[in-house]
Design a binder for these strands. Sequence first.
DNA 1: CAATAAACGGATAAGTCATCCGATTAGACT
DNA 2: AGTCTAATCGGATGACTTATCCGTTTATTG
Lengths: 187, 187
Amino acid sequence: MTSMRADAVRNRDLVLATARRAMAEGDMSLQLNDLARRAGIGVGTVYRHFPTRRALLESLAEPAFTALLDDARVASLREDAWTGLRQILRTLLVQQLSDPAFTEVISTSPALDASPDTTSHREAFADLAQAVLERARQAGALRLDLTPDDLHHLVCGTAFALRLTPDPNACLDRYLQVLFDGIRTTA
Amino acid sequence: MTSMRADAVRNRDLVLATARRAMAEGDMSLQLNDLARRAGIGVGTVYRHFPTRRALLESLAEPAFTALLDDARVASLREDAWTGLRQILRTLLVQQLSDPAFTEVISTSPALDASPDTTSHREAFADLAQAVLERARQAGALRLDLTPDDLHHLVCGTAFALRLTPDPNACLDRYLQVLFDGIRTTA
DNA sequence: CAATAAACGGATAAGTCATCCGATTAGACT
DNA sequence: AGTCTAATCGGATGACTTATCCGTTTATTG
């Protein structure tokens, strides 16, 4: 079994924790040198664990992805496909509002150099979303000209709109409603 | 009359042209040092005309703003307020798809250090939009819980969604329709 | 407790940002 | 045309950020 050395694990977690703290303080720059200094470890160590800003982002987004998947699994089992779809859309918005790293990962085309974890999370979610979407379509009232990708883009767009807002959480359900009404078939 | 020196005007235009060329080539970084080199003028000259990346962006966005205003004036005079509103929303999307600088300016809260031109353009547009919105509301069928700002955010969100797309122009009218249906009153 | 592969850390080369100020020049005035 | 001067120019430069490399240290294994 090829496991990581204890100090490596410790330092990796330390970087992640420091990065989260920095983001919570409003510093989105995620400068790896700066994180190293803040975490009290060497720059080389940080760069070894996270060769790029992007790699760090994906690791930061990991828990949000897990939460999203858990939620989507529940949602996909709901009796009413529309309710399930709504729940998934809402969770996507909520996660984006609460986690900038997740936002950046989910709002970007799957990168070629993405971590295996990120890729598999994306695929797992895409499958769940597609299933719910399919059921919702069969239940009627979903626009015919919307692909799963379209919906993905539109949700990210709605999250973007919310971020422009002075109080995103206050606007969440209103904007979600606009999106939701928009993806119904027009009479 | 306090006019600019001829060489100053020339160099300013040169920087703008160089920046546009760079953006057309897909380089969004707008590094002022780099632009200076490309334009064949001194760094100091570039920084004098455009102290920040933001100032440059606003100048680049100027023509798009003018086009938007021209269009909005026409739209606001239309018989049918809904048609006018739709036209304005569409133009906002089209301009954002064709001009990244405009996109960045319009998708941002009015900055305190914004140029007078940008500020007055924004205000003029806000007035026109508000008027059309008001008429559309009276014509019925517009959600009651949407402020002009909400609509602004949602349009920028839709533009963001379009940018995630492989072929934004192909999706434009589809996504616009989703937005448009979303802002109607639900039955 | 040695052996060693893995991980550490920080000096540093390369690249970017933005300012400052001596040199230059456009435009006004004679 | 020639002179003056305030406006503009340009690039050397210092501060800052990025990312690598490699000698040193340490966790793990038997």
